[in-house]
């Protein structure tokens, strides 16, 4: 589903000079899998995911999503993905229903099909109690649920979660991880970035540890443990980035 080869991204920073945000990063993620990008803040996770979401263009390398090139076929890629990030906000002056409906319409969904899909999603994500509340009045948890509904409305085969649990309380974070697991069961290809080891251990089928724009290690959790002779992911992580 997702193929990334030698993806690099650098930009000029006034203080630091040329910053290598990503350096020849390569990975693959398949359908029915959660691919975890594990790394500290500033490791390059968001840059990689923004390139997959066609918001940024790579300096070098190739990335395809469901067969579409992220640079030359950006509009087609955007039809294949749903994006949720910790920093993604909802519109302050729109209700949950209006917002999700708007993005469903942008994806070209017909009114009746859209309504049915929204009813189902709102029930599943427990949005119905606050469906007519304006974004400005929602709590962080409510906003994140609405963002997930917005990302899922067109039933995309690929989902990108960029630090989606940051700022959420334990209950909402747990519910979110449960939702992602359910989506994996439905055969979605999920790319999930986090800096929380517990989440990666619990959820990801494949993990890539990223630091300073480079992937330091990648594979399934058992294979990583075996390869580096370390059972504890946190210890393994610190040893790699040290």
């Amino acid at each position: 589903m997702i193929h990334v080869r030698d993806l690099s991204k650098h930009y000029a920073d006034l203080k630091l000079g040329q910053v290598q945000a990503l350096a020849e990063v390569s990975f693959d993620a398949d359908a029915g899998q959660v691919f975890g990008l594990l790394g500290p803040n500033g490791a390059g996770k968001t840059t990689a995911l923004r390139i997959l979401a066609t918001m940024l263009r790579p300096t070098a390398g190739v990335a395809t999503v469901n067969g579409y090139d992220v640079v030359t076929q950006a509009p087609a890629v955007r039809r294949q993905i749903g994006v949720v990030s910790g920093g993604t906000a909802v519109y302050d002056r729109m209700t949950a229903w209006e917002l999700v409906e708007h993005f469903g319409r942008l994806h070209g969904m017909q009114r009746e099909a859209l309504r049915q899909r929204m009813e189902s999603l709102f029930d599943r994500l427990q949005i119905r109690p606050f469906r007519d509340v304006l974004g400005a009045k929602m709590s962080t948890g409510m906003k994140q649920k609405v963002s997930i509904a917005r990302a899922l409305i067109h039933d995309p085969p690929v989902l990108i979660f960029d630090e989606a649990t940051s700022g959420l309380d334990v209950l909402v974070a747990r519910a979110l991880l449960k939702t992602i697991a359910e989506l994996r069961e439905q055969g979605k290809c999920i790319v999930f970035s986090t800096h929380i080891m517990r989440e990666a251990e619990r959820l990801c089928d494949q993990i890539a540890i990223i630091h300073g724009g480079r992937i330091l290690a990648a594979g399934t959790l058992p294979s990583l443990r075996q390869m580096h002779g370390e059972q504890d992911l946190e210890e393994l992580f610190f040893r790699l980035i040290a």
Binding site: A53, M55, R78, T88, A89, Y91, L106, H107
Partner: peptide
């Protein structure tokens, strides 16, 4: 500023 532009940029709209 509100962080909503990214959601629109990820949508299929050109």
């Amino acid at each position: 500023e509100r962080g909503t532009l990214e959601t629109l940029l990820c949508s299929p709209a050109l």
